[in-house]
Design a protein around this nucleic acid. Structure first.
Lengths: 200, 200
DNA sequence: TGTACATCAGTGAACGCGCGTTCACTGATGTAC
DNA sequence: TGTACATCAGTGAACGCGCGTTCACTGATGTAC
């Protein structure tokens, strides 16, 4: 590697970390506002830069949004994966509890994901990358069901379980007239009910 | 009732039926476009009227959207209710099959519902009326679970079941690279898995 | 019957705003000679 | 060492568009006398 190469590489890394700062700001904004209400100007303000600068790092708004979404998605996969690694023969109730807690605590990711799933305006390529992220998460659930069941239909069980968890959080997220704690504990209770049904 | 009264009543009915025409047009537009992409002008065009006229019947956009959502919601409640009425001792697999089919066929309602659930910008009053609509649907599910189980925890079972169904449709609605038929049959398969788990 | 007036559905044009995106520019840093 | 130039992060202002909403107006219909 020549001197010029490593210099360029450093530059590239700096650029990459600046990109990261913007994505991080985006994640923070998504945690505060409803998805459709988030603007480029919001994110720029949160990052402390001019909104024009964002276009030096991302071709357009959608690309930034999708990247922010995927970064959060990678975190949940890592989280669940570690949970299974650390506790051998982990119980599904435990996974459920943590998964719902994660979704509630990080509901920006969750809202983004739902938005992209329901919105038809995403390019095929972007849908594809989001979907491969989803498959990685499903693979983690596969590991649990592979241990639990006799090995058949594992993927379908993962799908059903994943869908049910999503449904719980989406359906009861805005339960009116209840505090955040009450809503969360209701979701956890529903998660337990579903998890138990998946045991047999 | 005086002559003037009945005249006024007729006028009121006409006004009501014109409102209905607008809501109907809104439903049709929602069935074609993603929720956030629907505009007042779209609906006016579908109804064949000037977009300014909509404001003679609805105070603002949100009120129209919520009303369209609730009208579709009333239909699904009616549908499920009738299903239970007509078939005594109906099996939960059957209800699941119809419910998922209804959600897929009427996914405009479904998208609206999800939008309002995830969006925090709705007035308390409007969230309240949407929620009472949801409760009416849950009451139908209660009827099924009351017959099936020994009577305890019926409401929680309905919640969990309802959430799981929602989750299936949301999560796998935009499965990339699959035809509409393939996606639907996948959802039905997942619905069957969940329904069977709710039998015991 | 005719006339002046009230009511109200309906309209096209316009307002005002906020958004995504682009543009012309600055200023710092590195490079060639 | 000094100088002319290239590169590129970063910026504020502006563009263009589409949206929700309002406004001034028309025209039909009913009413009072």
């Amino acid at each position: 590697m020549t001197k010029g190469d490593s210099f360029n590489k450093l530059k590239e890394q700096e650029r990459e970390s600046r990109r990261d700062l913007i994505i991080g700001a985006a994640e923070r904004v998504f945690s505060k506002k409803s998805f459709n209400a988030v603007t480029i100007r919001d994110i720029a303000k949160e990052a402390g830069i001019s909104h024009a600068l964002i276009y030096r790092y991302f071709p357009d708004q959608q690309s930034l949004f999708v990247e922010a979404c995927m970064r959060r998605g990678a975190k949940i996969v890592e989280f669940i994966g570690k949970l299974i690694d650390d506790n051998n023969n982990i119980k599904i109730e435990k996974v459920t509890e943590h998964f719902i807690k994660f979704l509630v605590d990080n509901d920006q990711y969750f809202r983004m994901m739902t938005h992209f799933m329901l919105d038809g305006s995403l390019s095929k390529e972007k849908i594809g990358s989001l979907n491969s992220g989803e498959r990685v998460l499903l693979a983690q659930f596969d590991r649990i069901f592979a241990k639990m069941s006799s090995g058949k239909n594992v993927r379908m069980l993962s799908h059903a379980y994943f869908a049910a968890m999503n449904g719980i959080v989406i359906t009861f997220r805005n339960y009116p007239g209840r505090s955040r704690e009450e809503v969360t504990s209701h979701m956890q209770e529903l998660g337990r009910i579903i998890a138990l049904k998946f045991k047999k």
